[in-house]
Simulated assay, not measured.
Amino acid sequence: MTAPAPARPLADLMPAARDLAEQVGGIPSRNRIMTELRVGAPKATALREALIAEAAAAEVVPDPWTFAESTDVPAPVSPAPAGSAAVSASGLGGPEQVSPAPASGLAETEQVSPPVPAVYPRAAAVEASPQVAADGHPGTSPAPRRARRVSTWPLVLIGLPAFVAIWAGWVGLGGLTGFGVVHPLPGIADGFSINTAITLPIGVEVYAAYSLRAWLSGTAPARARRFAKWSGIGSLVVGALGQVAYHLLVAAGITSAPWWITTAVACLPVAVLGMAAALAHLMHDDAEVTR
């Protein structure tokens, strides 16, 4: 049966305890000392009390930017009681006065004299530098610059000739495909008449503008934007084909459009109505689901 290992004196354990205090940035707990240094509870308590005494006796306030450690200040050494080990004033390898250890070797209680005051580096609290504005005054930020809005009056100059050309082309194509003047209120207002050809530019072009607004605004739901994108592009393509068809028929001297052009033009009001209703339904339905 092997004899128990001799107990390490506190003088040998103090350097490791100081290193542990430096690592944690303060006085470690008794359990931490027991775990890291592999000592019993009495010796861990004694080491912790020694570290507390060192920190209390320290008179030098550490500079947060330079972690200097001083061990040149002597401390009074109190006589160690009988049955305990006394650590010398040097604390780090000086002469030791150790009384004979008891036979148990593990349950002894060692009293440590006040050691040399030491300064333990602590984590420096680095404060964030104040924000410096463009004018050089700290603590302030430059005022946000408002984006300059683009003038919309050039759209009037662009839209007026386009409106005249598109309106004339659709009304002319409507006349070539059977659209014309009708009396929508017979027996009620016999004198009231309207040219049904105006339904083409109003329906097709207004829906194209409405769908593009729903697509590009970014406020409509995802499904509604997707439908508005493709239906709006399709409306613009159909409007361009209608203008091409009208000018080709007029340039060729044709007074009545072929049947397939008449069929396509006659279906436009119904198609526009269906797309507008579908887009409004998608926007309303997705808004309800989101809410």
Rank of each mutant, 00 (worst) to 15 (best):
A197H: 01
C267V: 05
P114D: 08
R149L: 10
V181T: 05
L273H: 04
A143Q: 12
W167K: 10
T255A: 14
E110A: 14
P28A: 13
A50G: 12
S90C: 08
A277M: 09
L37T: 02
L282D: 00
T199E: 15
L282M: 01
W153Y: 09
A287Y: 11
R48G: 03
A147N: 01
R291Q: 06
M1Y: 09
I198Y: 14
A103I: 07
C267G: 10
V24S: 02
L268Q: 08
Y207A: 14
F192W: 04
F227C: 00
R148H: 13
A58D: 09
D72W: 13
P28K: 12
G136N: 03
P62T: 02
V24A: 01
L13Y: 05
V238Y: 14
A271W: 03
Y210I: 13
R8I: 02
P79G: 07
G25I: 04
A44H: 02
E288I: 15
A57W: 04
A5C: 00
A58M: 11
A50E: 13
L241F: 05
S235R: 11
A82I: 12
L37Q: 03
R145P: 01
S84F: 00
S151L: 00
L268Y: 09
V237E: 02
Y207M: 11
V181A: 06
A252P: 04
A197D: 02
P115T: 06
V77A: 08
S78A: 09
E54R: 02
F163E: 12
K43D: 12
S104C: 10
M1G: 10
L200C: 02
A278L: 15
R38M: 04
L212Y: 04
V116T: 14
A89I: 13
L185S: 06
A208C: 06
T140K: 02
Q111Y: 03
V206D: 15
G253Q: 00
D63G: 00
H281L: 06
L160A: 15
E108V: 10
A143N: 11
G159H: 02
E108C: 10
V171H: 14
Q111V: 12
W230D: 13
V238I: 15
G239P: 00
I166C: 09
P258R: 03
L268F: 03
V289C: 07
A124T: 10
L10F: 14
D72I: 04
T263F: 11
G175M: 08
E110M: 09
T219C: 05
G180W: 02
L200Y: 03
R146W: 12
A124D: 07
E69Y: 05
E288P: 00
L216T: 15
